[in-house]
């Protein structure tokens, strides 16, 4: 176990160390993050990283392969553009969690704020609590699972993301509709919940997706553009 104390060691030295080509230490502990931005971004190795406390913006940004656990709350854009691996937040996440992420698993054990999964491109996001407004805006691919409630304009201008919500949805965004929950979706959701370590009943969720009405410009849809 390698320990980095951000109250004494610099963020630059930490990230540089995490980017080295051949890292012998596989387990890392980062102490005193104290809300610093850009902690452990750009990691490209199957490291196991625990962060003891709250982090600022873009923690675990563009993560590849690493398992990163934040034992606290996360600022804006946690795991933005993640490609693979797993990022787990024990507390709450601020806006744009998992924005544009292409792959991997993002688990938020608390609540997530606005724009969770905005423009997501293949990541799986599981939120134990609630999510804020405009979540999954222009979401292209992947899954967004919400065990609590979802804010306004969920899935606005959605492409192909699958959204599962257990609680209430304040409102759906343009072109996002409730869809039938078929067996394949129950199975998919069961898998996502189990990967996230949650035991909610998949049958208690509703599914939302794109009506695909805005996929091509049509005069009749002019008010929606």
């Amino acid at each position: 176990m390698t320990t980095y104390d951000l109250s004494t060691d610099s963020l630059r030295a930490l990230n540089q160390a995490l980017h080295e080509e051949e890292i012998s230490a596989r387990e890392w502990r980062i102490t005193h993050p104290d809300g610093a931005h850009n902690i452990a971004c750009g990691v490209n190795d199957a490291l196991c990283i625990d962060i003891d406390g709250h982090v600022g913006y873009y923690c675990a940004g563009m993560n590849q392969k690493a398992q990163i656990t934040i034992h606290g709350n996360a600022g804006v854009g946690v795991a933005e553009n993640m490609m693979s691996g797993c990022v787990r937040i024990k507390g709450d996440a601020s806006q744009s969690a998992g924005a544009t992420a292409h792959g991997g698993l993002l688990v938020i054990e608390g609540n997530a704020s606005a724009r969770c999964g905005i423009s997501m491109k293949g990541v799986d996001i599981v939120v134990k609590g609630n999510i804020g407004p405009m979540s999954a805006f222009m979401g292209q691919a992947g899954n967004l699972v919400v065990c609590g409630d979802a804010g306004e304009a969920l899935g606005d201008s959605l492409y192909e993301v699958h959204i599962y919500v257990k609680g209430e949805v304040a409102s759906l965004g343009a072109d996002c509709v409730q869809k039938e929950m078929r067996q394949e979706h129950v199975d998919e959701l069961a898998q996502l919940l189990s990967r996230a370590g949650l035991d909610d009943d998949p049958a208690s969720f509703k599914r939302y997706g794109s009506a695909r009405e805005l996929y091509n410009f049509k005069v009749d849809n002019a008010t929606a553009y």
Partner: peptide, 18 residues
């Protein structure tokens, strides 16, 4: 999708540099 004003952009640029 993940920043709004110039103060956020400064952090975004720092991320890209990191």
């Amino acid at each position: 999708p993940d920043w709004t004003g110039p103060d956020d952009l400064a952090i975004k640029i720092a991320e890209l540099r990191e």
